[in-house]
Computed example of a mutant assay.
Amino acid sequence: MIDLHTHSTASDGQLDPSALVARAASRGVQRLALTDHDTTAGVNEARRAAADHGIQLVAGAEISASWERRTLHVVGLGLDIAQPTLVAGLSRQQAERDTRAALISERLARVGLEDGCARARSAADGGQITRSHFADLLVADGLVRNRQDAFKRYLRPGRPGYRRTEWAGLADVIGWIHAAGGTAVLAHPFGYGFSGAWRRHMVAAFADAGGDAIEICTGVSTVEQESQSARDARRHALAGSIGSDFHSPEQFWLDVGRVRPLPPHVSLAPHAA
């Protein structure tokens, strides 16, 4: 069993890298990629834990990219995490995240969230500050019922706490991944809320920019969506990838390894086999 898209406390996951690896091993995962948002900070800890549990750890990251005034996520697999181009690129992303966090905090202060930036930084505990950290603060302060409500009311595009972020361009992000010897995978293609035409436009643009693979089977994808993504992969000569997008044990429907295998006639992404 493989799972090539998971998150730890190095970004917005709830398990530290060692605990994530232990959970993966207990669920029969034999090959696991740690793909935290715009960081590889948890990879070395996860790699040590993977050796202890006898599973293969694929060094990765889920990198945000700007495309057509929208944000896409590109999973890098098989990364040399010390490669200078990648390190510089992720540093740029982290600086942008810090700027975004300060602006989100300012905006949420207007709806009653106090000292948001400092509290989010504390909750992140050295990891990346994400919108999920602010969502949890909104829940803790009784301003919303749950994370889903926080995003719906405050943190999605067009809402009071949203701040559009200008990430690096799609071709740049793919270039960082390739410079680090990795495979660039378009994450959760049905997860952006695009129409069919826009989704096809996105996949074509990703392939044209040098992308290598598309995430076909995810924790929430339907069989129909997986079949469509497999057709997209074949149309654009892309390989396929599999990933639960695990963040928390509480989201049992996204648990580590809870993902279907690739459909027939799609090759597994390099660095995943």
Rank of each mutant, 00 (worst) to 15 (best):
G126Y: 10
R27C: 09
I63N: 02
P263A: 03
L79S: 00
D136L: 11
H188A: 12
L77W: 00
A101C: 09
D172C: 10
R199A: 04
S11E: 05
T71P: 08
H201P: 01
C217D: 07
Q93S: 15
A272W: 09
I214E: 03
H265R: 08
P261I: 06
D172M: 06
R156Q: 10
G60H: 10
C217E: 08
E226P: 14
H37C: 06
V144N: 06
A184G: 04
A272H: 04
Q30K: 14
G60D: 02
Q128K: 10
Q94G: 02
R100G: 12
L155D: 02
D255H: 07
F206D: 11
G243N: 12
A124Y: 09
A118K: 14
A10N: 05
H5P: 08
L143P: 10
Q251K: 15
E114Y: 10
A10D: 02
S64D: 12
R231M: 08
A184P: 02
W198V: 13
D125G: 09
L238P: 13
L4C: 08
G175I: 02
C117Q: 14
H7Q: 10
G193H: 13
T165W: 01
S105C: 09
G193N: 13
V266F: 12
E250M: 01
T40S: 06
L262Q: 08
G78Y: 02
P263C: 10
D212Q: 04
A41Q: 11
R107A: 14
G210S: 13
T165R: 14
L262R: 14
D38K: 05
G196C: 03
R260H: 13
H73V: 13
A135V: 08
R200I: 01
D172Q: 15
Q14I: 00
E114T: 15
L15C: 08
L238N: 06
I81K: 00
D115T: 01
D98I: 09
P157I: 01
A180M: 06
T99R: 15
R159K: 15
A272F: 14
S18M: 07
A59V: 06
G112C: 14
R235C: 04
D16M: 05
A197Y: 00
A187P: 12
G42S: 04
D36E: 07
D3E: 07
V223E: 14
I63V: 12
R100W: 10
G161A: 11
T222M: 12
R131P: 13
I242L: 08
P249W: 04
T183K: 01
A171N: 13
P160V: 12
G257R: 07
F134H: 06
M1V: 14
A95D: 14
Q251V: 00
D98Q: 15
A101E: 08
G54D: 09
R199F: 04
A19K: 11
I177A: 01
R100M: 13
S244R: 07
E166Y: 02
R159Y: 00
F151M: 06
V43P: 07
A65L: 02
D208E: 15
S267H: 06
R258H: 15
A25N: 05
A109S: 15
Q56C: 11
I129N: 12
A51N: 09
A65M: 05
T39D: 01
S105T: 11
W167M: 07
V259T: 14
P264E: 04
V111K: 09
G182M: 03
E62W: 07
R200G: 05
L4V: 03
S244H: 07
A209C: 05
E226A: 13
T39Y: 09
A213I: 11
